Amino acid sequence: MQPFEPFDTKTSSWIFTPDENRKLGGALFGDFRYNRVFIYHNGAESYYVSIGFRAKLVLKQ
């Protein structure tokens, strides 16, 4: 989404994590810093638990 316009530039957000990883307690999140998108992983029960989804993007062909 960042190529279209700056989006969620001040906080981190959970991103879709495959079920197999969620079942193991993992979760993916990302943020936009220094004009780049960074993707990280952490335990879903970490202090990032307060991070929420900001949007849902659906691509249609």
Rank of each mutant, 00 (worst) to 15 (best):
Q2R: 13
P3W: 03
E5T: 10
E5V: 09
P6Y: 07
F7N: 03
F7Q: 02
F7P: 01
D8E: 10
T9S: 14
T9C: 08
T9Q: 15
T9L: 12
T9Y: 08
T9F: 08
K10C: 03
K10M: 08
K10L: 07
K10I: 01
T11R: 05
S12W: 05
S13Y: 03
W14H: 04
W14R: 02
I15C: 01
I15W: 02
F16D: 08
T17L: 08
T17G: 03
P18A: 05
P18S: 01
D19R: 15
E20R: 14
E20A: 12
N21P: 00
R22A: 14
R22W: 09
K23Y: 10
L24C: 10
L24H: 12
G25R: 09
G25T: 14
G26F: 05
A27E: 02
A27L: 10
A27T: 01
A27M: 09
A27I: 03
L28T: 01
F29Q: 00
G30D: 06
G30K: 06
G30N: 02
D31G: 05
D31L: 00
F32G: 00
F32L: 12
F32I: 04
F32A: 06
R33N: 04
R33D: 04
R33K: 08
Y34F: 09
R36N: 15
V37S: 07
V37W: 03
F38H: 14
Y40I: 04
N42K: 11
N42S: 15
G43K: 07
G43H: 11
G43N: 06
A44L: 13
A44V: 10
E45I: 12
S46R: 06
S46Q: 06
S46A: 08
Y47I: 09
Y48M: 08
Y48H: 14
Y48I: 07
Y48W: 12
I51R: 00
G52R: 06
G52H: 01
F53V: 06
R54Y: 07
R54V: 02
K56H: 13
L57E: 09
L57I: 10
L57N: 10
L57R: 14
L59D: 09
L59A: 12
K60V: 13
K60F: 11
Q61T: 13
Q61P: 05
Q61V: 11
